[in-house]
Amino acid sequence: MDSIFFITTMALAIAIIIPFYRVAVGPTVYDRILGSGVIGTKTIVLISLVGYLFNRFDMFVDIVLAYALLNFIGVIAIAKYLERKEAQK
């Protein structure tokens, strides 16, 4: 059973590295935010899986809950900021 958790963690680790290409290359600034948003949401699950592998799942679930909220608010704040910036132009 633990090997399945390990396989999932490896898959998630690879899935986190891939969007860095989009963050680096992304033609528009929105692609970069999208890439970082994708990485943010993936770290949510990676932290909970790593927490499970460290057998301290109680602590990590709370960290994951807080991080999910922060990541969402971050993306919304940046999107709102870019809308306002366009209005001033």
Partner: peptide, 18 residues
């Protein structure tokens, strides 16, 4: 949250004329 965040991004991008 995830669809809402991507919707906000797409809306901001569309308003900026992408």
């Amino acid at each position: 949250a995830n669809p809402t965040a991507t919707h906000a991004l797409a809306r901001a991008a569309f308003k900026l004329g992408i």
